[in-house]
Design a protein around this nucleic acid. Structure first.
Length: 311
DNA sequence: AGCACA
């Protein structure tokens, strides 16, 4: 099939990166559907686009920094994968392999392993398509994506001198699409002259963000085994929430608080992995009783989790 | 669990 080319709109404006976050309170899941909040151009399943970044920012080491993303629906688009990862610190590029089957998979390259791991834990288990019931399974890839012109210590087993990047002629073999996102302004295409908004220096914790990828890292509260649930409707019942959250691995208990003001809930999980997975899975899920954007999940403020953790 | 591209 013929490849077509899609340029994310914000790449055409030098002032439009980083892309504006969704409006406050807006779930990136778009209510009941996919996470993307950019205007959806009518892109066919297979298209390709390169965005160069000054690749000197690539990591010094040859540690795995590529994510393998499974669980994508067969009609997933490279744009969607790109939109999923682009706001994570250290994002470099992504590549979608859309087979004919109903299961596509993708790779996302990061500048270093901590960045990759942060994006991993933030996206693993998240619902990519509610209607198709697609849940992402994200893992470190078995190997890093080949990047032209960057040798780790492993030289490619073949001679590759293809420096001529044909702006339209990628392998018409179809199924692959690359999206590169530039972070540093020295792109040879120089489409993007934006401030270096992303900080690459948050290596202290694998799951912290310097920049808010909106729903992925709500607030700055540190990950913990308890989740805080908000945006519940006035009619929301505790049992309804229990029904929802008990489907998550590691669920321990849920306590609702509807005495004062808007109802909220606290959900305990057996560990941070479980709570994080639940957060990603259920973020923005629309309950009968939760208006509009669906439930909002956060790690609680520290003051709220002292007691749950002690007992 | 499923890992390509050159």
């Amino acid at each position: 099939m013929a490849a077509s080319y899609y340029d994310p709109p914000h790449l055409h404006s030098s002032s439009s990166y980083p892309p504006p976050p969704p409006p406050p309170g807006t779930s990136t899941y778009g209510g009941t559907y996919r996470h993307a909040y950019l205007p959806p151009p009518p892109a066919p399943a297979a298209y390709s686009a390169y965005y160069d970044r000054a690749e000197q920012a690539l990591p010094p080491r040859d540690e795995l920094r590529t994510l393998f993303i499974a669980g994508l629906p067969g009609d997933a688009m490279a744009r969607e994968v790109y939109n999923l990862f682009r706001d994570f610190p250290g994002y470099v590029s992504s590549h979608l392999r859309s087979g004919k089957s109903s299961q596509a998979y993708a790779f996302a390259v990061f500048a270093d392993q901590p960045s990759a791991l942060a994006a991993l834990s933030a996206t693993n288990g998240m619902v990519f398509d509610l209607e198709k019931n697609c849940t992402l399974h994200v893992d470190l890839a078995k190997s890093n994506s080949r990047s032209k012109r960057f040798r780790s210590d492993d030289a490619p087993p073949y001679p590759s001198e293809k420096k001529a990047r044909n702006p339209r002629g990628f392998s018409d073999s179809g199924a692959g699409s690359y999206i590169h996102m530039s972070g540093m302004g020295n792109s040879s295409h120089s489409l993007i002259g934006y401030p270096s908004a992303q900080s690459y220096s948050n290596l202290e914790s694998g799951t912290s963000f310097t920049k808010d990828p909106s729903t992925f890292a709500p607030q700055n509260n540190p990950p913990c085994p308890t989740l805080f649930v908000a945006n519940l409707g006035p009619t929301c019942a505790e049992q309804e929430l229990i029904d929802v959250f008990s489907s998550c691995a590691g669920f321990v208990k849920l306590k609702m608080q509807n005495k004062l003001g808007a109802p909220v809930a606290f959900v305990d999980f057996k560990d941070v992995n479980s709570s994080t997975e639940a957060l990603n899975r259920l973020q923005g899920v629309v309950l009968y009783s939760s208006p509009g954007e669906g439930i909002r999940l956060e790690y609680p403020k520290i003051g709220n989790l002292i007691l749950p953790l002690l007992f």
